[in-house]
Design a protein around this nucleic acid. Structure first.
Lengths: 163, 163
DNA sequence: GGTCACTTGATATAATATTACACTTTTCCG
DNA sequence: CGGAAAAGTGTAATATTATATCAAGTGACC
């Protein structure tokens, strides 16, 4: 972890959002990809929290602002953001989170709290390495790894009195 | 891997099915769980191949035999089999495979061929260990790991002529 | 034989995701 | 500039995956 759990719990989240959006603009510009209004809005909503967001929750929020937003609107934007590496899909939740390391090559590894829903993206290089190695020795050519650890986060493990 | 890829490609699959069903009977007896007709049938169908099976494919097959089979029938049986550790859910496919090590504690780790759909369950102890360790040091109490590697299996990597 | 827990049947519906086609906007080349 | 091609979006319909609810059946055990 780059920051402590305490720091995380009290962090200024608006800064996360701003930096995520800035990074997205930059990355898209560099890749010649268009971060349109819809896509930007979806990314912004995904970044509302560090919990995984459901596509239909995004849909509900966006449809309130503009009734022309329909499921394909959301899924297309998500597909784009995922292709750009700005958003990750959490398979075990059918939900989505903002990528904390856009633009840097990394395996997708997540700690998912089943209590509060917080998704923490981590980087444990050995895991990717061991898996790729094991796959290779089985004659398997690994393209993509889905690594999702469920459990309870630090905060949710604490007795209530200590929070 | 306990057997070679070549051996696997030509293996006598009916033996897999028989041994899976036998192991299931044994395990359920030991746990005081009831492997009813429905449940047994679902397990059998899951074991039809080493590919992940969709719930609605199971449903279609079973409904052909008995029209009273409905989605809950299948999902309940799958829930039971998963709880008994006889079947694993592949999150990234919304599909199910038979467990090759029922009764033995293990992390669920899979190599999934995106060409032929074959799912190979593997055991790479370091991966589970590294992940748990990383989680712990982040104050996270890990309960369950979802590890699914997508790519191309040995057979599908071979030029067609060599198959 | 009664009762309790578990299992199943049946109906309905919720939640997640995609297809298809028309239309608009942007790009970009001559 | 103008206009064709590509990319993005709107719209409607539908496919796929999964669960809730309540009633009825089944087997285990005293």
């Amino acid at each position: 972890m780059s920051i402590s759990k305490q720091a995380f719990d009290r962090h200024d989240h608006s800064a996360c959002v701003v930096s995520a959006l800035d990074a997205a603009e930059l990355l898209c510009a560099r890749h010649g990809a268009r971060l349109t209004g819809r896509r930007r809005r979806v990314l912004e909503l995904v970044w509302r929290s560090h919990q995984a967001v459901k596509a239909y929750d995004l849909l509900a929020q966006m449809a309130r602002e503009d009734p022309s937003v329909k499921p394909p609107t959301v899924y297309r934007a998500l597909d784009f953001l995922i292709a750009q590496g700005l958003v990750h899909r959490i398979e075990s939740l059918n939900a989505f989170v903002g990528c904390v390391r856009p633009g840097q090559a990394h395996h997708e590894q997540f700690l998912i709290c089943d209590d509060c829903g917080t998704v923490q993206e981590v980087e444990v290089p050995e895991v990717g390495r061991s898996l790729t190695k094991a796959a290779t020795s089985a004659g398997f050519q690994a393209d993509h790894q889905t690594i999702e650890v469920h459990g309870r986060c630090d905060t949710c493990c604490q007795p209530a009195s200590r929070r």
